[in-house]
Design a protein around this nucleic acid. Structure first.
Length: 102
DNA sequence: AACATGACCATTA
DNA sequence: GTAATGGCCATGT
């Protein structure tokens, strides 16, 4: 792993405090990739490990993004709830309350 | 080397 | 409030 933006993304995501969440755009910005929010999503999708709290990363709508393959989107929600994050009646997270602000 | 695919965001109408 | 468009990069074939 001598390369790539991915490492920067993983680094930022790893720095997300427990009980809080961050949006892809925010991760990209903190990782030094303003506007490259996509890469963040791809990086997480390529990730296949628990070394990074990827479940703390959500889309700009404050909702969990559906992933390919499907069937595991609920795992992310369960994990967030386990950390103290609550979802509203629309299955969304109030970013005004849980958004990670470095 | 080229083509196709993929957890997105911001702007504009 | 929704709908559509452009932009960006890494990975695998």
């Amino acid at each position: 792993m001598t390369s790539s933006t991915y490492q920067d993304i993983y680094a930022v995501v790893s720095q997300i405090p427990q009980g809080q969440v961050a949006t892809y755009g925010q991760i990209a910005l903190l990782a030094g990739l303003p506007g490259h929010a996509r890469q963040v999503g791809y990086a997480l999708s390529a990730l296949n490990d628990a070394s990074v709290p990827w479940h703390r990363v959500i889309n700009a709508k404050g909702e969990i993004s559906p992933r390919s393959g499907g069937g595991h989107d609920e795992l992310q929600r369960l994990r967030l709830e386990a950390e103290g994050v609550r979802f509203d009646s629309c299955d969304r997270i109030p970013l005004d309350r849980y958004r990670w602000q470095p």
